[in-house]
Design a protein around this nucleic acid. Sequence first.
DNA 1: TCTTTTTCATAATGATCGCTCGTAAATATC
DNA 2: GATATTTACGAGCGATCATTATGAAAAAGA
Lengths: 205, 205
Amino acid sequence: MKKTSPAKKRSPGRPRGFDRQAALETAMKTFWAHGYETTSISDLSRAMGINAPAIYSAFGDKKQLFLEAMRLYQGDPQDQAEGIAGAPSSRDAAAMVMGNAIRTFTGKDTPKGCLIGTGLATGSPAAADVRAEGNAMRDKLEALLVRRIERDKTEGILPPDIDAGTLAALVNCTVQGFSTLARDGASAAKLHAVADLVLAGWPEE
Amino acid sequence: MKKTSPAKKRSPGRPRGFDRQAALETAMKTFWAHGYETTSISDLSRAMGINAPAIYSAFGDKKQLFLEAMRLYQGDPQDQAEGIAGAPSSRDAAAMVMGNAIRTFTGKDTPKGCLIGTGLATGSPAAADVRAEGNAMRDKLEALLVRRIERDKTEGILPPDIDAGTLAALVNCTVQGFSTLARDGASAAKLHAVADLVLAGWPEE
DNA sequence: TCTTTTTCATAATGATCGCTCGTAAATATC
DNA sequence: GATATTTACGAGCGATCATTATGAAAAAGA
């Protein structure tokens, strides 16, 4: 009898003895807690519950594992782009971005702060390319905000003389600051109060 | 004939073949560029131009060397305290703190960003005590700002209903964000524009 | 000159780094 | 059951980690 549902077919060979996605999630949290270069393969092996060779066969090497963990961390890049572009105003977009950051940085079941901001804050020249990936993500966020702010200007929601780059940098700066404050133990409530202060100074027509 | 000026007397033994202060400064910049745990003794030895045993005899171990570099980096803590306490207003104090941060984080002859914010952003549990030192410095800054803001409230310069903790956290948050932005390549001018935006939203009576 | 004191450079310590080899085990296909 | 394929796991690779033992070299004081 043929299987009615074309479920996942099993390829030949010994089946993997662990859940790849769960292991990736554990790796993400481990990197998140201790940084990219300062997390060792043996740290990861212990946390993920699998031996080092299993990590390499499933994820490549340490760099690829981190990059994959980074993609899991940031979620779908299109969601971010659409969230900012689709916000009613740049002010709403800024509020959303900061709110999301606060939620991520003060999660109960995850390390405090930003995986990318803290885990890639610095390091050896050998990891410069990985740091550049994190840098690119922050630049991307700022660019999306700039575009949203410019649109507000052309639509008359914001005065035309304000500097979109500065305003976007303010939001980016605040988010990055949240990462450090959260790691220092600041509560979500405190960060929300700071975000409200930033939004209170948001320019108006 | 007695020496008229009680200059530095030379103690017996072979004299040190390097300038301790200059070596410390080089160590500071090396840590600043590559982080505490991700800078190796051999990195430091190469940069400082002295062999590893000379580092250990002159500075103790890696942790003590970093802590001494951190003290050189921050300067006299009393200067900061007096600068904030002695500012005409909390707004002036915030402007000064942010301005100093921008100058330090975008210096021409030093690495970008904050030695403490980036070099101690994360790491292994073995270095948790060193990170706690950096954490304490940020807390100290915020506490000084809180005190200055509270004084403005009692003196009627600021309305009594504003939250000093939130306002101080905003400044601290902005400064920490500056570190990441500077490391990402932001210019001093751009950071000053952001600082002006923060100050523009500063509450008034 | 001789002793004492301190610094020098070479070389080595055991531990850990990221990573891989080799072999046994577990599955699908023939 | 035989074969092919994939994974698990112990062991080990060379390199680097922070740190130190060793002994020659360079100064002061006797």
